[in-house]
Design a protein around this nucleic acid. Structure first.
Lengths: 204, 204
DNA sequence: GTCTATACCATGATAGAC
DNA sequence: GTCTATCATGGTATAGAC
């Protein structure tokens, strides 16, 4: 691209759209609301995006690409599989705690049953992320049910955030946003007992 | 109630509404669509329910009360805490696998941030369920982070279903609906390593 | 208890001026 | 690149006949 346009408005739109879509989902947000939040008219939105669907897809990609690539990059520093898993849990819970919009937009994507949208978003955004964890499981627990293991580990990190709003009203509530490290330690201690059997790691 | 009216239409409405709300959520469903699915007019819906919000609340309660009480009742047969946990995992995954509407309506409720709705639904439907699991953790692992443990266990069962639609497109996919027992064994073997340390159970 | 008919409003989207 | 103005559609909800 020889174009050096800052596309400042486009970014402002994406920022506001992310907050709104993360909050109430695709159907819950109107183009008027997004426009009002940005401080432009609806027509301006349609200049930057062909329709609501494309705005949504661009918004989800925007929200994911701000968080997932840096997260995966941080794992590169660790070569030992257990250290890598440990770093993943710590970093992932920290990201989920720090960016509620990222956490919630992911939740909306998972509930979506539109084939087209799911295909696009899953393959471009989830796949590399998930494959990394699956590969890690392969090293830690060769030959075992690596798929279920990967799902379990991601779920252990994500589910406490997904249920955060409802759990406020339940007995013994602990906030994963206030105590992300407490959550990370809990998950790691849970996994230690089960994953260390075949591990080649030197961790106690 | 001296009234013996079968309320047959009301039940038919709830059945259809459950399918629709479970599929695309509160905002995604129109009263017109529900009416069409039931085979009545919109006005008939408003005879049985004051507005869309109340129809939704009644629908969620309907979907939950069909599944959760029987599930909890089945646990009564086991007195040993580990046996009880084991039964819970097995039964819960079986219910989630058999009733996709129940599984998905739960997911929608968790994403909802309406204070009024969340308060009502969480306290009446989730609380007894969650307290049972927390109490179980108290017995299995006295003094430990029982809240995080309960969340982890429920998440291990629920998350594979929540991600089912997206995971179809990922490498090594296993369907929790096709293999609920495989999932249950996986979860139990994961937990065995971590929870048996202080257990008073006689299980190997 | 269910219908027809309709009020009223918000939505996604577009045309054309500037 | 952003605006004003407008359109067609579909949303929730109600009144009143049967």
């Amino acid at each position: 691209m020889t174009d050096a346009t800052p596309d400042i408005t486009r970014e402002r739109i994406l920022n506001q759209a992310l907050v709104q879509f993360a909050g109430v989902g695709f159907e819950g947000v109107s183009m008027r609301q997004v426009a009002a939040a940005v401080g432009v008219t609806v027509a301006a939105l349609y200049y930057h995006f062909p329709d609501k669907e494309q705005l949504y897809l661009a918004t989800v990609a925007y929200g994911f690409n701000r968080r997932l690539p840096p997260l995966m990059a941080a794992l590169e520093h660790f070569s030992d599989p257990w250290d890598r898993l440990s770093a993943f849990i710590t970093e992932f819970t920290a990201v989920l705690a720090a960016d509620a919009d990222f956490q919630r937009i992911m939740q909306w994507v998972l509930l979506d049953t539109d084939d087209e949208r799911t295909k696009t978003l899953t393959q471009s955004l989830f796949a590399p992320f998930f494959d990394e964890i699956t590969g890690l499981m392969q090293k830690l627990n060769p030959g075992k049910e690596v798929h279920w293991l990967a799902v379990s580990i991601i779920g252990l990190a994500v589910f406490p955030f997904e249920t955060r709003f409802a759990r406020r009203l339940l007995s013994g509530y602990r906030s994963p946003r206030q105590y992300p490290d407490e959550l990370a330690s809990h998950i790691l201690s849970l996994l230690r007992g089960s994953l260390m059997h075949h591990s080649s790691s030197s961790r106690p």
